[in-house]
Each structure stands twice: as C-alpha cells, then as structure tokens.
C-alpha cells in the first residue's frame, strides 16, 4: 500500500505542475481582443483547475500512506479514482484546451493529463480492490 501511496503522491504533484508549464499562456500565447486587450485561452483555466485537483489528490496519497483501517483505504481509493477521472475530464470535456492542434496545450498538456489521470484511476482502483481482501493493520 505504501508503494501505491507514493505513486499517488508523485502523480498528484505531476498533475498539479505539468499544466503550469505546458499551457499556451506559459509559452507566451494569449488571445488578443479587438480592443487590444489580451485574455487567457481556455487551456489556462484547465491548468488552474488541475492545480486545484492536485491538492486533494496529494492529500489522498498522504492519508493512504498512514491509514491502517481497510475501510479508510477503500474510501480513499474511491475518492482518488473519482478525482482521477475528473483530471481526465477537465481537458477533454469540462473545460477543454485550444482547438489548434499545433498549440502546446494540445500536443503536451492534454495527453499528459489524460495519461496521468488514467494512471491515477488505475492505481486507486487497485487500492480499492486490494483493501477489500485485506485485514486492518495493527497500530
């Protein structure tokens, strides 16, 4: 379970950090309105949302490392899997990324988040399955 907890913490950090450096705004690209004002593209808001998702996922990993009761592990696993699914949904359905396939958010940020989200869901589901057949650890 310790290995899973470490993996969740590592993935949570990557989920929070990668979008900050791979959204279009980080590469100096913004939308310029007719009045000359520059506004962020939607991939920037996806990056912000992923940063917000990284924090509870980090907490899930941390708590899992110290949890001894199998019910706690199971619940943490379910929560991690749901949050992992939201990590995938942010760039694909909920907010999205830029339309132009040449943009860095399409080439790097979106695939990275889908991959990390899939891994997060898989590890958390494994935690849930494992916790079903486990005994509570002694304090």
């Amino acid at each position: 379970m310790k290995v899973a907890a470490v993996a969740i913490v590592a993935l949570a950090i990557l989920i929070a950090i990668i979008p900050i450096f791979s959204d279009c705004e980080s590469q100096g690209r913004t939308l310029t309105l007719e009045n000359g004002r520059q506004v962020s593209m939607k991939c920037h808001w996806t990056a912000r949302a992923e940063l917000a998702l990284g924090v509870p996922l980090l907490a899930v990993g941390g708590l899992l490392a110290f949890s001894r009761r199998k019910e706690t592990r199971r619940n943490l696993g379910i929560m991690g899997a749901v949050l992992g699914a939201v990590v995938i949904l942010m760039p694909t359905a909920l907010i999205g990324v830029c339309v132009n396939p040449d943009m860095p958010c399409v080439g790097i940020m979106k695939p990275a988040l889908i991959l990390l989200g899939v891994l997060m869901v898989a590890i958390n589901l494994a935690v849930v399955v494992r916790s079903l057949g486990q005994e509570d650890e002694a304090a």
């Binding site: 080439g107 695939p111 899939v118």
Partner: peptide
C-alpha cells in the same frame, strides 16, 4: 498498456 497509451497520446509531440 502505459507505453501504448503514452505513444498514442503523444503522437504529435
């Protein structure tokens, strides 16, 4: 599984 998913997602990169 992980390698195939990564390669398919990062085709453009």
């Amino acid at each position: 599984g992980v390698s195939t998913l990564a390669i398919s997602l990062f085709q453009r990169a």
